[in-house]
Amino acid sequence: MTDIGHLIFNLLIFPGGLFAIVLGLLLMGIDRKIVARFQRRVGPPLYQPFIDLVKLTRKEIIVPETAHLQAFRLAPLLGFAGMIVAVILIPIAGVYQGLEFSGDLLVLLYLLSLPAIALMIGGSASSSPFGAVGFSREMVMMMSYELPLLLVLLTVALKVGLKTGGIATFSLSKIVGFQLENGALLFDYTMLPALVAFLIFIPGTMGVVPFDIPEAETEIVEGPILEYSGSWLALFKLTNALKMVVVLGLAVALFFPTPLGENTMLNLLWYFLKYLILLVISITIVRTSTGRIRIDQAFKFYLKYPTALALISLVLTLVKG
């Protein structure tokens, strides 16, 4: 009974649910503020994403006449549900253990593709031609960034598995536990290419500027979410915020989970700081200093560089053990 109570607490308050939503929205606000500063603007206040959400809940919901109502309504929920489950799989070292079962990395891999699938369903159900274009682009993007992600996860799993005497361990808590004992994978030179590959993967999955091709707002007017309004759009925004927490959290857990000490609050702050650094490196700076590329360029890019980097890491891991 307490176990289930614990799970519900984890799902709704901490680290999933409320905590993750607040964290994700805050990260988005910080991102917007830093981008504004990069462009010599003042920018919106840090809490702007919260205000946006409150505003969206007070707007009318318009459903296109020709849309498939069921799919159109379920799509935002699908992405949101996937992400809220994914958050509790991410362990926060020194604060939260994660759900300890073997294979949670694989579950996470599947859950991570849910928001993209939700976008695809929503876009194609909206019956808008822009939605259809966005759908096909989202699909291509997903195919291109999934491969490097898979290779990076495999590399990390193999590394930890070989070191602990098994084959490959797809348990996130085991990976974190291994790093707590033997030092973070960040300081292992064989893992550096994989880390870079993961950093390149982040802007792709988050859909920020050089890779925001499926939602290009100046080109196909926000593609799949074009027809959404009101609280359904707010759900998409929430999903995006949660996805940010999940993706950045995965990077922290895979490469640098080392806690600061015994103090829980201190660890939480340290964790937040790591998020912030990752956010600035992999999203904000990339967003300000590049322009949008074409879908075929993005496809080629992902299949060339991150894949090659991840493969180098994989080979090094297999050779060195």
């Binding site: 603007r41 707002e217 926000e222 979410i225 027809e227």
Partner: peptide
């Protein structure tokens, strides 16, 4: 940057539904 309208929380959106 001189007339940054984002200070007021505004954002230009591409879709009329937003």
């Amino acid at each position: 940057p001189r007339y940054d309208v984002e200070r007021l929380g505004c954002k230009y959106c591409g879709s009329p539904k937003h």
